[in-house]
Every structure is written in C-alpha cells, then in structure tokens.
Design a protein around this nucleic acid. Structure first.
Lengths: 209, 209
DNA sequence: GTCTATACGCGGATAGAC
DNA sequence: GTCTATCCGCGTATAGAC
C-alpha cells in the first residue's frame, strides 16, 4: 500500500471522525468529509466504497483508546489504585479523544446498529473482568457491598459526560473549552467521590493493615 | 380546537418522540412517524407543517418532566434529603420518560442546534439555583468541599445513563428491560455513593447535631 | 378536514475522461 | 490513481381530489 494511499485514508478517517461525532451518522454528508479532508468527494468513495463502510472504519479506528482505558483493571489488584487509575484514564479519553467518545455514545444510544460484533464482545469481556474484580474486592471486605454493574455504569457515565455532553459543560461552566486544570479537578473530585462513597480502603491503609 | 385535532396531534407527538429517540433527528422519516401513529403521511404535515417544526413540538412536549425533576432543590434545604429526592426523581424520569431523555441527550450531544433558547435558559436557571444551594451546604460545613458543577455533572450523567444508554445496560445486565427493583437498586446505590462520597451529614444527624 | 398522487431537491454512488 | 460530470433513489413537502 502506497504512502499517499495510507496518508489519504488517514486524512479521511480523521475528518470523518470529527463530523460523525458532531452530527451523527445520518446527518453526515460525504461531501463535508471530503471538504474537511481537502479532497474531492469521489476519492472518499474510492478509498472506502460506501458511507456505511467508512463509518465502520471510523469505529474501528477509535476503539483502541476506549479499550485501553480499562488497563488498570488488569495491572493491579488494589481497589483504590485501580479505581483511581481507571477514572483518570477514562477522563483522559474524554479529553484527548472526544470524537471517539461521541461516535460511540451516539452509536450506543441508537441501539448500536453498526457496531461490529467482535468489538461489542471485547467490551463485554472487559466488563465481565472488571465487575468480577470489583465483586472480589467486596467479598474480601475491601469496600462496601456495592453492585459492580451499577458502579461501572456510574463511572462510565460520569467520565464520558465530559466529552459527550461538552455543550452542556461549556454552558454551565461558562468556558468554551475546559483547561487541563479543569480535567484534573474533574478526575480528582470523581475519584474522591467514588473511593469515599464505596468505602474503599486506601492502599496505604490496606498495606498497613 | 376540535377533539379530533387535539387527539391526532397527541398521537403524532407520541409516535414522533419514540422514533426521534430511537433513531435521532436526521435518520427519522416522517412516514415512519405517520405509520406508528396510524395516520397517512400528509396528515403529519397538515398538523405540524414541517419535520423541523414537529421536532420542536416534541422537544417542548418532553421538557416538562425533565424540568420537574429539580423540584427537590426548591422544596427543602437539607442536603441528604434534597440529594436523595433529586436522584430518585432523575432516575424516575429515565424509567418513565426514556424517550424524552434520549431526545434531549441527542440534542445536547450535537450542540443543541434545535433547542429553543427559552428552554435552554430555564435549564441554566435551575442549574444556577442548584449549584448555589450545594455551595451553601459546603459553606455551612454540611458536606465536603466539592465543586457543585462537577457534582451535578456526575448526578446528571449517572441517572440519565439508564435511559440514554439502555442498550449497554441491557447487554451488561443480561435483561431486556430493567425491573422496578432494578431502578430502585440503582437509585439507592447512587444515593449512598453520593451522600457518603460527599460526606453529607444525614438529616437525622444534622437535626441531632 | 382527509388522503392519493406527485413534484422536487438533496445526497449517495459511479462512469468515464485524464 | 484522481477528479469532473452525472445518475438515480429516497424523503420532504404539496397540489388537488374527495
């Protein structure tokens, strides 16, 4: 595959991510994507064959950061550490990949009609791993007897909201864009809320006890 | 205005809420709305003139339950009571008006292009009232020094997720529909998380203290 | 007021020249 | 491989019969 080919595909995927995120699948026009990518419309079809196919490529291109965010669950077994790192990672995704987050949110909200089954399975797999781990913490008395699913739903929603509902965030905070400081505060506040709210033993206390 | 006219308008609005919620504005076809309402397509245009106009009517028809949920903030001044009642009310909206919630979520996620300014102002007004009240609790030492905006973002996201991302909820819980019990559990868990996580004095303790 | 039949424009997709 | 010119179907909207 040639350099130019690779480059143009990337240009198109990038432009498409932004526009699909802003407008949703149905409202997006291929010509807008072409314009933003600086290419004529038929080139988009030349590289991706159809709108639907381009959309699937976008989904695949943005899945990686979303799946990566769950790493903390695989790398540690201390609830305070894992939950804090997970929240930080999820907020970072909202900050650094807002388009990915929105494309996914839109997709899920409308019943995931275009989500490839293998991606859906990977996410389900992660969810099972994560909730099992939370359950094991509960069983070992490391935190309150929370329902792991509900806890995950809350963490997902509270972190993704900074990307998905950025219009509302902007309006309420009176800022066009959140600063690094704002994201740090969000992560810190949410971590505090979750850890304290679930009665999680801090790692220091856990190690000392 | 005649009975039939009123009745047909309601039929159409109801059908339209469901389909706009499921598919989003751009993907929705008037003929589907007409079919679900059991009327011929031109009748929809006869009553609402255009798709855009119908959509605005839908938004106006679903705004009420959403605004009503903030009542607890105006009816009491005890943080434990207000936050618990607010969370219960918000979860109830997700349960009883899932279409309203989704139409709004979709609208906000795409930058609120069709949201009438007076509605946006009412919501902003409520937000200011609510966050001022939270701030006053912080100042009076009734809870931890949380940032009111971030706390509201978390409560909004965590409660709305049960309507907006129902596909994901279904998949994770393995249930097609959540039962009354499930919603009660969600509300109870989230209330516990927020109250404990923010170090809110329970009303009993507050009154005793 | 209601509905059949139809106009019309937009946007996805492609033929074919370069 | 690239892009101009064009096709064609779908969905919004309406004219006009009843």
């Amino acid at each position: 595959m040639s350099r130019i080919r690779e480059h143009n595909r990337e240009l198109i995927i990038q432009a498409a991510s932004e526009i699909f995120a802003d407008q949703g699948y149905a409202a997006t026009k291929i010509i807008e994507i072409a314009n933003r990518a600086g290419l004529p419309k038929p080139n988009v079809y030349y590289y991706f064959k159809s709108k639907e196919n381009l959309y699937r490529s976008v989904i695949e291109s943005v899945i990686d950061p979303l799946l990566q965010a769950a790493q903390p669950f695989y790398e540690d077994d201390d609830p305070a550490t894992v939950l804090e790192q997970y929240i930080i990672a999820k907020i970072k995704v909202s900050q650094q990949h807002p388009h990915a987050s929105k494309v996914f949110a839109s997709e899920i909200m409308h019943g995931a009609p275009h989500l490839p089954e293998d991606i859906a399975e990977k996410m389900m797999e992660q969810t099972i791993q994560s909730s099992n781990k939370i359950q094991s913490w509960v069983d070992r008395g490391l935190m309150d007897r929370v329902d792991p699913h509900h806890l995950l739903f809350t963490i997902w929603a509270a972190t993704q909201t900074y990307a998905d509902f950025d219009w509302q965030i902007s309006r309420v905070t009176g800022k066009d864009n959140l600063s690094q400081q704002d994201y740090d505060t969000a992560a810190q506040q949410l971590t505090q809320l979750i850890l304290k709210g679930c009665g999680v033993q801090t790692s220091k206390a856990a190690k000392a006890g």
